[in-house]
Simulated scan of single mutants.
Amino acid sequence: MSTGLPPDVPPYTKVFGPGANCTLEICPVEISVYGYAPSLAANVVFLCLYILSACIHVYLGIRWKSWFFMGCMVLGAVNATLGYAARISMHYNPFNFAAFMIQIICVTSGPVYYSAAIYVTLAAAIKDFSPSLSRFRPDLFYWVFIPSDVVCLIFQAAGGGLSTASSGTSEIGVDMALVGLSLQVAMMVIFCGLFGDYLIRYFRSTQYQADLGRNISGLDFGTRLKVFFSLMTLAIMLILARCTYRLVELREGYRGELIHDESLFIGLEGVLVISAVYCLMIAHPGFIFKKSQQILLNVSGSDGYEFQKVPSQTPASA
């Protein structure tokens, strides 16, 4: 009776699933889910970069009291750290099913936290600079887009969970993850369109010229403003490109060609997302909002999530 395994692999061997007992000693790496042993060097680098980003975002969050932004960035970094730690484990055993599912869930869902941080920060920027130029109330950016992020996260996590329970054979699990990724891509495209429209209107307005006259410790606020909006825009575009790649990859399932290409994963998952994380570090809201307009999360009242302006007599330092 044929087992579908290479002739030199024992017939009792299970390649994939909770009870997988394949190891590199008895199974060729080509029959693993990825078809390769994840690069140790690349995954250690990503792991270290995410740990470093978490430490820096904690420092910046405490300094500028940007609790929601800090929470999103740290949660995203923790997710990524767990995911890349699992991939490091898979370097030594590509057949480790638990590590495979951990990295599928954690690495795939990580950018949801970063996009939530972007939504709230840019909504706050609209409220601070010129809310009258927005075609929608700035509050709608986080009343609509953050709940959609939560739904995306639920679908992606549930899809990964179903895949785990079914040893990776559940089409429902793959479909649920696809729904989550598809919704995430669609909402990000809508957000980019709405925010792009606002930026065009803002940079053409007299309010923009007035904002250039703001002063933060004598530094060029106009440069800060351009860097802030440019890197925020770049971050959301990087995350959008990454989500599009994962959507195409997952459409082929665990046996598609894209999932076996580690160079694509490193470039279009690892590099794009970590670049977005460091863009958000440079474009941290604390660098653009005055200390008298520190970002605090207010969850009381009918306004929901809101950035408050806290009186202060001391301008922010660079």
Rank of each mutant, 00 (worst) to 15 (best):
I154M: 11
A165C: 11
I146Y: 03
I105H: 07
V144H: 03
A117I: 02
Q103G: 07
Q156N: 10
W143I: 08
A125S: 15
D139K: 02
P138I: 01
G110S: 14
L162E: 03
A98P: 13
L140A: 15
F100P: 00
A165T: 13
R137C: 13
F97M: 08
W143L: 11
Y142Q: 12
Q156D: 05
S132R: 15
D128R: 13
F136K: 04
S148Q: 06
I118S: 01
Y113C: 08
P147R: 13
M101C: 10
W143P: 06
L162D: 05
I154T: 09
L162T: 06
V150W: 10
P138Y: 02
G160M: 02
D139M: 01
A125W: 03
V120G: 00
T121F: 01
F155L: 13
A99T: 01
V107K: 06
V150L: 15
L153G: 08
C106K: 05
G110F: 00
S132P: 09
K127Q: 15
S115H: 01
V112Y: 04
P131Q: 13
F145V: 13
F155V: 07
C152R: 04
V151G: 07
D149W: 04
P131F: 12
P131G: 13
A157E: 08
F95P: 00
F97T: 06
L133P: 00
F95N: 04
V107F: 09
D128K: 09
T108A: 07
F145M: 14
P131Y: 10
A99W: 00
A123G: 14
V150A: 14
V120C: 03
G160V: 05
S109M: 11
G161I: 06
V120I: 10
F136A: 02
S134H: 06
V151T: 10
Q103D: 11
V120M: 08
A117G: 12
N96Q: 12
T108N: 08
G110E: 10
A99D: 10
Q156R: 10
Y142K: 08
S109F: 02
D149K: 03
Y119K: 14
S109H: 01
S148F: 01
A98L: 14
P138L: 02
I102P: 01
P131M: 14
F129Q: 00
F95S: 04
D128M: 13
D128C: 11
T121C: 11
S132M: 13
G110Y: 03
K127A: 15
S163K: 06
F136H: 07
V107C: 11
I154V: 15
A123K: 04
A99R: 02
T164H: 03
Y113E: 01
S166W: 08
I104R: 03
D139Q: 10
G160Y: 05
V151H: 08
G159C: 03
S130E: 15
L122I: 12
A123M: 07
L133Q: 05
A124L: 00
F100K: 00
F97L: 09
G160K: 03
R135E: 08
S130Q: 11
N96R: 02
V144N: 05
W143C: 07
R135W: 09
P138C: 09
L140S: 13
